[in-house]
Measured scan of single mutants.
Amino acid sequence: MSGIALSRLAQERKAWRKDHPFGFVAVPTKNPDGTMNLMNWECAIPGKKGTPWEGGLFKLRMLFKDDYPSSPPKCKFEPPLFHPNVYPSGTVCLSILEEDKDWRPAITIKQILLGIQELLNEPNIQDPAQAEAYTIYCQNRVEYEKRVRAQAKKFAPS
């Protein structure tokens, strides 16, 4: 494992614990031996107030490669969400998460999670990743928002 990646992720964890947006979660997972795995984080993004996503808490896994922060983490909703920019596998399609697009090593975990929260309610229809959600979003916004509200209710924190 890269010392650069681990040191950056340790800084990220410290900064997150000191200050993070209300309702968001970002925690490194534990290895079988109980030690912390900084390369694999369990996160959760709350649906934004005043949107059909409100009330939901959407679980996301963030996986970092050894060359982080040169390369972005892979962000994957578990379980996958109904959304035009979420692949059926759950992987998020967002330009700041793509090395050859808008990724920059200075982007923080907090910025990534806030960017994904923004994307939930403002899909990028130029870059669809899920045919069904994309089609319904474009053709029947009322039905799309109904499905999103049902999903938010399903993923409401207990």
Rank of each mutant, 00 (worst) to 15 (best):
A152S: 08
A26G: 09
P21C: 03
E122V: 13
A10F: 11
R61G: 09
E122N: 13
S71M: 06
P69K: 06
K30R: 14
Q111R: 15
S2G: 15
A129E: 01
R147L: 14
H20A: 00
P73R: 03
G56W: 01
N121E: 12
I112K: 08
N140K: 07
S95E: 05
L97R: 03
A133L: 07
S7H: 07
A15D: 15
I45D: 04
Y144S: 00
K74G: 15
K48T: 11
G3E: 12
N121T: 12
T29L: 14
L119T: 01
S70A: 13
D100S: 15
K101Y: 15
F155V: 12
W41H: 10
K48N: 10
N124C: 12
A106Q: 05
K30P: 09
K74D: 15
W41G: 01
C138I: 13
P128I: 05
D19A: 12
C43V: 15
N121S: 12
E132R: 08
G56R: 02
K146P: 00
Q151L: 07
N124M: 04
N40H: 14
K30L: 06
Q117T: 12
I136M: 11
L94A: 04
N140F: 01
L97Y: 05
S70K: 07
I125W: 10
R8L: 15
F58Q: 07
E42K: 12
C43R: 00
I109V: 12
D19S: 04
G115Q: 03
E78I: 10
F82A: 04
Y87V: 07
P123Y: 05
P105G: 10
L113R: 01
I107W: 01
R149W: 10
L57P: 05
R61E: 10
T29Y: 15
P157M: 07
D102R: 02
V86H: 09
A150S: 12
R141P: 13
T91I: 14
N37K: 13
D19G: 07
V148Q: 02
E42F: 10
G115T: 00
G90C: 07
P88A: 14
L113H: 03
D66I: 10
I112A: 09
T51H: 07
V27F: 03
M39I: 07
N140I: 00
K110A: 04
P84S: 01
G115D: 01
D33R: 01
Q130I: 02
L6H: 08
F64C: 08
K65M: 15
T51Y: 04
P73E: 02
K59C: 13
W103S: 01
E42V: 13
P32V: 10
Q151A: 03
K48R: 13
K48G: 02
Y87M: 08
K49A: 13
L113W: 04
E42L: 06
A26N: 04
P128D: 04
P21K: 06
T35A: 08
L114W: 13
C75H: 04
P28L: 07
Q130E: 08
E42G: 11
A106I: 08
K48L: 13
T91K: 05
L114Y: 12
E78F: 04
P46V: 09
K101A: 15
G115W: 00
G50K: 14
W103G: 03
P52T: 12
V92H: 01
Y87N: 02
I4K: 06
E42Q: 09
H83M: 02
D33P: 02
L120V: 06
G34P: 00
I45Y: 06
I96S: 13
M39P: 06
E132D: 14
L9I: 06
S7T: 11
L119I: 05
P128A: 13
Y87Q: 05
P72A: 13
I45A: 02
K30A: 09
S71I: 08
Y144E: 02
C43N: 11
M36Q: 03
T108C: 14
L120G: 04
G115S: 01
T135G: 06
F64R: 01
G47K: 03
P157V: 04
K18W: 02
W103R: 00
R13N: 02
Q139K: 10
A150P: 09
K18G: 07
G23K: 08
F64E: 06
N31T: 08
N140G: 03
D127W: 01
Y144T: 00
N121K: 10
E42Y: 12
K153G: 02
N124A: 06
N40G: 04
E99I: 02
V148F: 00
E122S: 11
N124D: 01
R13Q: 07
P72Y: 00
A131G: 13
E12D: 00
G55L: 10
K154M: 09
T51N: 02
P32A: 13
Q11L: 13
P128V: 00
G47V: 00
T35V: 03
K18S: 09
C75D: 04
K76P: 01
K74I: 15
S95F: 01
D100R: 07
S95P: 01
L97T: 15
L120H: 00
Y68K: 00
Q130Y: 06
T35Q: 04
T29R: 14
P157Y: 09
D19C: 03
